[in-house]
Computed example of a mutant assay.
Amino acid sequence: MDSPHGAAVTAGGLGLKGPRGWAFRGVTFDAAPGSLIAIEGPSGSGRTCLLLALTGRMRPTEGEATTGGLPLPGRAGAVRRIAALGPVPGVSELDPAFTVAEHLRERALLQRRFGGSLRALLRPRRERVAAARDRIDAALEAAGLDPATLPKAERTSVRDLERLEALRLSVTLALIGRPRLLAVDDTDLKLSDAERAEAWELLRLLAADGTTVLAVCSQAPEGALTVRTGTTGATEPTDITGEPAPSATPAHDEGTADAFAETGRS
């Protein structure tokens, strides 16, 4: 798949406060384009809030951040156009009643209507259909998902997919838009050791191909630039080498839903 050049991601003293306290605070790191960035920490420590803030979906309370050179939150709309969400519970979940084919067709249609150029919209229908199929096939290949291996091929319902297959489908849908940044929540949730290794290998390959990857996890893989969140919601920033920077100010435990209610979707 021909991936676009990835988006650099930076943060300096970044923090987000919700109704019951800080979701995260003191996040500082600098990631080059094509990096694999792992946001590591236990559930409830602000991991998802940080992912949504860096992709322009939540408004930080303090500090500075840029994604693809675009400052946040000022250029959040532009950031959303270059950053695609994979699976994020409550934000970009798969519909369990949809089949794989229905999800793929819907995403390709949305991409053509809202993500394409006017010239592309005016092309003959046959050309539009062929272009959409090419995008889908390229995204499937990049995500390592072969519909022919599924129980009912593309007619397989999401509810019948294994966890790793559902993850690959979510990544496929995100890649149809050819984003510069791919964000994935709960990367290692409910995966066996072997499946976890497969998931991280997929994300490494995408990063190596040029797309910056931002992934929430309970345990970061070796070689990733790791941003850690603690049990109190505090964040241990990392620099570009992945080594811990000075400790951040501790924060109150905060869930994604509470902070999301306070900030809204920007």
Rank of each mutant, 00 (worst) to 15 (best):
R57G: 01
A53Q: 10
L51C: 08
L109M: 09
L50T: 06
G68I: 07
L51H: 02
G46V: 12
A83G: 04
A131P: 07
L121P: 02
C49H: 06
V129D: 15
T61E: 13
A84N: 05
F114D: 12
D134C: 15
R47Q: 14
A142C: 01
R128T: 10
L145M: 09
R105G: 09
G74K: 10
T48Q: 08
G46E: 07
L140Y: 02
G74Y: 01
A120W: 04
L51I: 08
T67V: 15
I136S: 05
P124M: 12
A143Q: 03
A120Y: 04
L51N: 01
L145Q: 07
T55S: 15
L104T: 08
L72E: 06
G77E: 12
D137V: 15
A131R: 15
R112T: 08
I136Q: 06
I82A: 11
T66E: 11
A142K: 11
E93K: 01
A108M: 10
P87W: 12
L118D: 12
G77K: 00
M58H: 13
R75S: 11
P60S: 10
E93F: 04
A97F: 01
S117C: 04
V129Y: 07
A143W: 06
R75W: 06
L50N: 01
G74E: 14
R112S: 10
Q111N: 12
V88N: 04
T55M: 03
A53P: 10
R59K: 11
G116W: 00
